[in-house]
Computed example of a mutant assay.
Amino acid sequence: MILAVFLVLIALCLVLEAWSRTAAPKALSATVTADKRLLEQGVPFHLNYTLENTGSLPRFDVHINQYTPSSLVPEGSAEAPFTAERVFDWRTPIGPKRKHTVRIEVTGLSRGRYRIPVCSLYQGDFLGLLETPVTRVLSIGELVICPRPLSDSPDLSSALGGFFGDLSVRRFLYQDPVLFIGCQEYTGQEPMKQIAWSRSARGQGLMVREMDHTATYRVSVIFDVQVRTGVFEKELFETACRMVRSVLEFLENKGTAYAFATNARCAGAITDSRYVPEGIGERHFLSILELLGRADGHCSFSGEDLMDAALYRQGGRVGIICCTLKESDDTVRRFVSKASLSASTVLILSAVDYLSDEEEKAS
């Protein structure tokens, strides 16, 4: 009797083994997603691995593995299904018409664009002797980690505050036609330069131009990554990206509309454009942060061409904030001279001035 039961069990195992080897893997699929595709440096996020069985029969052994970039560090790795080589490795059975999801908390240590390889999905047999690859896998493709802002930097805040002070003085000295909203009668208290002589000549008495001094300033931010002397320094470039983000946050908090342009090569960008038209708000801010996250340190064209293009696009904007790695040659000085001819106020920010502060705070 015992022998008969034993033989029946063996036969059943062989039948299940034969079935599991011939079962079509089309019912299995896997999807890899992230909470967001634009992430903050050093802030944990989740990678979501979802396994789905749309068939009417169970799968006894399903295996998923995937290599992850070394800069993406899993949190609580003792419990997460990661090997020492940063390979996500997950085995599980799954019933019919079921879906399983595992969420792994991961932290991006470094700014940059990371390609997430497509994970491998295998269907194992009943006895665990053979694995059949499954091709129905969807992956997020890439993640972009944007730079952190600079640590509390009084020097940068002071420089930006002085820049806006210069804009206020220039607005008083040189009337901006963009701010003109109409005319009013001369009261004797307005300066002579505000008299609208063409309107006064119509016989209505002396009229003065009325300006909207409550209008916010409009500026351009340019990020020049050209290395003119010496060799490329990664830490200096990372500090420059953080400095640019701090500038953008300052403008957002001040409610100042701004345009952005850079000559940095942006890896994997959908378009080759590195110019973001004037705007303000979260979407505008995040679109520029993505460019900073994708910047790989290579220069696409010269800083002089970048600065000339900024002057060409200047339009009604009266201020230019030029962020560079090092203020080291005549290119920047020529740019300042050209900008002064167009009545634009220029602020030059060099990342090398903030590099030592960041290194001290990091240590």
Rank of each mutant, 00 (worst) to 15 (best):
L251Y: 01
L127W: 00
L355G: 03
E235L: 08
A295V: 01
F260P: 02
A23L: 10
S139Y: 04
S340Q: 14
T216L: 11
I94H: 06
S356K: 14
F223A: 07
Y174E: 06
S300I: 06
K97H: 12
P154W: 00
I195C: 05
V352G: 02
R103K: 15
E79S: 14
N253I: 03
E85M: 12
P25M: 13
Q66Y: 09
R245A: 06
E185Q: 12
A23V: 12
E105Q: 10
E238D: 15
A339K: 08
R199P: 05
A84P: 00
R218T: 08
G297V: 05
G293P: 01
Y312K: 15
G188M: 08
G162Q: 04
I64S: 03
Y67T: 07
I320L: 10
S328L: 10
Q41H: 05
W197R: 03
L121W: 12
I288S: 11
V137L: 05
A84Y: 01
L167D: 02
Q184M: 06
G268D: 13
V106Y: 00
F60P: 00
Y174T: 04
L51E: 13
P149L: 07
P149N: 10
M307H: 11
T239F: 07
P44C: 15
T107D: 04
I288L: 08
G188Y: 07
I321Y: 02
V178W: 14
G182N: 10
F82Y: 13
L9H: 05
A351K: 02
S200K: 03
R265L: 07
N53F: 03
Y258V: 09
S157G: 02
R313M: 08
T92C: 00
V8I: 11
N263A: 11
G95M: 07
L38V: 14
A18T: 07
I288K: 13
A4Y: 12
V227S: 01
E278L: 09
V231F: 10
M207T: 06
L355M: 07
H213K: 12
F163R: 01
P147Y: 13
V87A: 03
R274T: 15
H284Y: 09
I222H: 06
